[in-house]
Each structure stands twice: as C-alpha cells, then as structure tokens.
C-alpha cells in the first residue's frame, strides 16, 4: 500500500524537475543541380533517440518549470508588479496567468462554498429534526441524492437546467427580461452557478452529520435551560450550538479539502473559459495529444503543497491530541 502512495508522489516530484528533450537539430546543406544549394535545418532522428534513451526522464531543469509562465511565473509577476500602478492593476495582470487564475477561483470557491453549506446543512438539520417521525426517512432519502450522485453527473444535470434553453435558464431569462441573457456568457455568473452547485452537492453531507449530532443532544441541559427561563432562541444559542461545534469544525474541514480540489463541476459546466482550478490544469496538461507530464507534475506538486498548507493546522492539532493521550 505504501508503495502505491509513496511511489507516485516521488514520481511526480521527479517528473516536475525534468523537461522532455528537445529534438536534436542539425543543419544540412542539400544541393540540387537546378536550384542550387539550400541550408536546411532538420531533426537528427538518431541523435534525438540516443539522447532520449540515455536519459529517459529528460533534461534536468531543476526548479525552472516551477517558475515558468504556466506555474508560479515569477518573472511575469515581478514585471507586472513593477509596471502596474496600484494594486488593482496588479491583480488584473495576475489574472492573466493560468496558475493565479486557477488559484483565484479555487480559493474563492473553497471559502464561499464551505461556510454556505455549513449554514444550509445546519438549517436543514434543524428543520428535519422537528418533523414528524414518519416523514423524516423520506426527507433524508431525497436529501442524500445530491451528495451520492456522481459529481460530474450532478453538475451536468444542473448545467442542462441552467442552459438558456433549459428550465432554470429560461426562467432567469424571463426574470431578467433580456432574451440574450445567458449564464454561460459571463465569468461572474458562471462562478455563481459553480458555487451554487458546490453548495447543492455538499449540503446533504453537512445535514446528515449535524442531524446525527442533534440526536445526541443533552436533553437535561435543554430542560434545565428552559426551567431557567431561556427562550427557544436562547436554548439553541447556548446549548445546541455549543454541542454541535465540534461537528461544525469536522464538516468545515472535510469540505475545505473537498472544495480545494474542485474539478468535476468545471468539466460538467464546460466552464474552462471562465473558471479553472489546479486540478483542472493538471487534467488539461495530462489529456489531449501532447501529454505534458512535466507541467502536470509541477502543478501536482504545487497542489500538494497547497493541501499541506491547508491541512497543517489540523495536523498540528491532531498531533497534539495524540501526544496528550499518550
């Protein structure tokens, strides 16, 4: 098992340091009797093959790929920092670099979807909990659907509905009153729809966890609070919410991680033009005719670093708890 986990990571890091060999070019003079001599540059097939066989991984370029235009783009960032007056312009120029564009969307998505779905999940859990016993099962069943359905399929279903010819898109057109209105045309609206999808997809998870938490509520405390004259709102505020707090942290954490790797909705919504994420960049580099392993590997390493940064507070806390237990 460790082999399968560690090996690809090592392989990714290795690949990210290398770049494929360029073809070996030689200049050849070909002379034909009629048109005279021309100097041609052709690919020396033998030499290229030899070179590729000698170093199958490619050229060692160190961290160069990390700093090129497709990734951290240090040179471009430095230049736009020098040229632009004011932060606004600087940000605008950053948005043209693929890595920062992806980062911008990934982070926005992560930090908007996570709190929204926690709140929605909480509200659903409270509402379902006050329902009649027989209704609960049915409601839970339907609530689970958006979560269990394949992310790509779920996003496709929503995407078809918000298509300007689909029912939601049609309704929006009607409400806006502009027959050419389309969610797909504008970056901002595309982001909004992706975020709506994200909340739709993840809220059931939060709901189920919170609902389970509500089943273990300390009834004595609530009764005590009521006897002390707490209103309904105060009971929720001072007894129920503190009880659910650890669950909120847990859900928020899992969702931070899940949202950080947002990928399928972008494919499903066909939104590459407006929103990309780190995962999507890797996918794009790997697919297609030219499989750019080095570029993809570099993005992967950067993503792993991002995940590590995101996880570090959690890991530190778990480690402390673990030590305390010992």
């Amino acid at each position: 098992m460790l082999l399968f986990i560690a090996a690809p990571i090592v392989s990714v890091v290795l690949q990210s340091l290398y770049t494929p060999h360029g073809a070996v070019l030689v200049e050849v003079e070909t002379c034909t009797p009629l048109s005279g001599c021309i100097l041609e540059t052709i690919i020396d097939q033998d030499a290229t093959r030899e070179l590729r066989e000698a170093e199958p991984l490619g050229q060692l370029v160190g961290l160069a790929i990390y700093f090129d235009r497709g990734h951290l783009a240090l040179a471009e960032v430095a230049e736009s920092w020098r040229k632009s007056d004011g932060l606004g312009e600087f940000w605008a120029s950053l948005r043209n670099l693929p890595f920062y564009r992806a980062m911008a969307f990934t982070l926005t998505f992560t930090f908007i979807v996570t709190p929204l779905m926690v709140i929605l999940g909480l509200v659903i859990a409270f509402a379902v909990n006050s329902l009649h016993r027989h209704l609960k099962g049915l409601v839970i069943f339907f609530s689970l659907l958006p979560f269990t359905v394949t992310p790509l399929i779920g996003s496709l279903i929503l995407f078809w509905m918000i298509d300007s010819r689909g029912i939601l898109g049609d309704a929006l057109v009607y409400m806006v009153g502009d027959p050419n209105f389309s969610l797909k045309a504008s970056t901002g609206l595309m982001w909004v729809s992706l975020i709506v999808y994200g909340v739709w997809h993840a809220a059931p998870f939060a709901f189920v966890v919170f609902y389970a938490g509500l089943q273990t509520l300390p009834m004595e405390q609530i009764e005590a609070a009521r006897i002390d004259g707490a209103t309904r709102w105060q009971q929720v505020r001072y007894v129920v919410v503190p009880h659910l707090m650890p669950l909120v942290t847990f859900v928020a954490l899992i969702q931070l991680m899940d949202n950080f790797r947002v990928f399928e909705p972008i494919v499903g919504f066909n939104a590459e033009a407006h929103a990309t994420s780190l995962s999507w960049i890797i996918f794009n580099d790997l697919g297609g005719e030219t499989r750019q392993f080095s570029a993809a590997a570099t993005s992967s390493v950067l993503t792993i670093v991002g995940v590590a940064i995101l996880l570090s507070p959690v890991l530190a806390r778990t480690w402390r708890d673990f030590k305390d237990k010992k």
């Binding site: 991680m257 790797r261 995962s279 890797i282 996918f283 790997l286 392993f293 590997a297 992967s300």
Partner: peptide, 13 residues
C-alpha cells in the same frame, strides 16, 4: 485531501 489527479500524473508515465 489530495486530489486523486495529482497522483494520477505520477502513475501515468
């Protein structure tokens, strides 16, 4: 936490 695709790029070559 890790997107599976980061690992895939390691497996592929």
């Amino acid at each position: 936490a890790m997107p599976p695709i980061t690992l895939v790029s390691g497996y592929m070559l």
